[in-house]
Amino acid sequence: MASGSVIDPIHQFQIIKIVDLGKPGGIELAFTNSAAFMFGIVALVFFFLTFATRGRTLVPGRLQSLAEISYEFVASTVRSTAGNEGMKFFPLVFSLFIFVLVANFVGMVPYAFTVTSHIIVTAALALVVIGTVIIYGFARHGTHFLHLFVPSGVPAFLLPFMVVIEVISFLSRPISLSLRLFANMLAGHIAMKVFAGFIVMMTATGVAGWFGAVLPLAMVIALTALEFLVAALQAYVFAVLTCIYLNDALHPGH
């Protein structure tokens, strides 16, 4: 399976144990490449933001501009979807956005591990969002939070159906939130690997293959551009949906 390891598009998602921590309580624990990349992302984000703002200059340089733009971009997203009240969740939304964004972009580096291509990671992030919505919603509004599931202005005979639909839509939120990000990153990376594998295989067949490889090469280039777009877009979508769900916690009445 020598050529198999070259064109194996799943290999990039493999979790590799760096430090095996044994099985405390029957649970397999290890410090893995995934964990290393998570900490790398956190360090990258933190050091970038502090390094970029080290001068605290009135007229920002390039790096400081970038830091300020990311701040203001997320802040305006939060304000426009959840209002000024939503700004109390700004650190959470910013952390989610920047984590997903940097994880997606780091994943675009060849040989790098894409943290967001693992559904357990995206699901955990989605549960953080929904958990925040539920906990804050009940803490702030008590049982009034349940009005979220009771749309107003609906005829009485339709109300039970509407409540069922609202509950299902609420429960499907964390699923769609996590699956969207996971599936986008997974499918994109697999597609890139598959077409890159075609190039390797075609060039291996000889001179004719070199010319034939132009087509998958163009495809890989196009996919790379698309994946950069998807990386940024999915981070934005995640942040916007987080804001929309948090807005429900702030204003449960329809």
């Binding site: 624990l29 995934s34 693992h118 357990i120």
Partner: peptide, 8 residues
Amino acid sequence: TFPSQLIW
């Protein structure tokens, strides 16, 4: 791999 990933 889930427990490790979740913890980290």
